[in-house]
Amino acid sequence: MSERHEPVTPAWECRDCGQSWPCPTRRQLLLREYGPHPANLSVYLAACLTAATADLRSPPAALRERFLGWIPHPRHRVF
């Protein structure tokens, strides 16, 4: 079985390493998987955030940072 570092709900912990999901390893896997499509990664993680909000009693800002705050954002070009 490969280590995919998937979440175990309702605690939203990593199945493989036990850290809060998305764990550092899963973050790297997601960045490679979504590559040049960070908007799609944001949509996926926003859906995960929505599900986790129903399970976890953490402050909304902390959950937002945990699920979305680490995603690199490309700079907007001004024409």
Rank of each mutant, 00 (worst) to 15 (best):
M1P: 00
M1C: 09
S2R: 06
S2L: 08
S2N: 05
S2C: 03
E3K: 06
E3C: 15
R4C: 09
R4Y: 01
R4F: 04
R4T: 09
H5D: 04
E6I: 14
P7I: 14
P7A: 10
P7K: 06
P7N: 02
V8H: 02
V8N: 07
V8I: 14
T9W: 06
A11L: 04
A11Q: 03
W12E: 01
W12Q: 00
W12R: 00
E13W: 05
C14G: 02
C14P: 03
C17N: 01
C17F: 02
G18K: 00
Q19W: 02
Q19C: 01
S20I: 03
S20R: 07
S20N: 10
S20A: 12
W21C: 02
W21G: 05
P22N: 03
C23A: 04
C23R: 00
C23H: 05
T25N: 06
T25P: 00
T25D: 08
R26V: 07
R27D: 08
Q28R: 14
Q28N: 11
Q28S: 13
Q28V: 09
L29S: 08
L29N: 07
L29F: 04
L29A: 09
L29E: 00
L29T: 05
L29M: 10
L30W: 09
L31A: 08
R32L: 14
E33K: 14
E33Q: 14
Y34F: 14
Y34N: 07
G35F: 00
G35E: 07
G35D: 12
P36W: 10
P36D: 14
H37W: 05
H37A: 13
H37D: 08
H37Q: 11
H37S: 11
P38G: 13
P38E: 03
A39H: 15
A39R: 15
A39V: 15
A39L: 14
N40I: 13
N40E: 14
L41Q: 06
S42E: 15
S42N: 07
V43G: 09
V43K: 10
Y44T: 10
L45M: 15
L45F: 06
L45R: 13
L45Y: 04
A46W: 08
A46P: 03
A46H: 02
A47G: 05
C48R: 13
C48V: 08
L49Y: 10
T50G: 06
A52L: 09
A52W: 03
A52F: 03
A52S: 11
A52K: 02
A54Q: 07
D55P: 06
D55R: 12
L56G: 12
S58T: 14
S58A: 13
S58E: 14
P59G: 05
P59K: 08
P60K: 04
A62N: 04
A62W: 07
L63K: 04
L63A: 07
L63Y: 03
R64W: 08
R64E: 09
E65P: 12
F67R: 04
F67W: 05
L68E: 01
W70C: 07
W70Q: 12
I71G: 08
I71A: 12
P72L: 13
P72N: 15
P72H: 09
H73Q: 14
H73Y: 01
H73D: 01
P74A: 15
P74N: 10
P74K: 13
P74G: 11
R75H: 13
H76Q: 09
H76A: 11
H76P: 03
R77V: 11
V78G: 05
F79M: 01
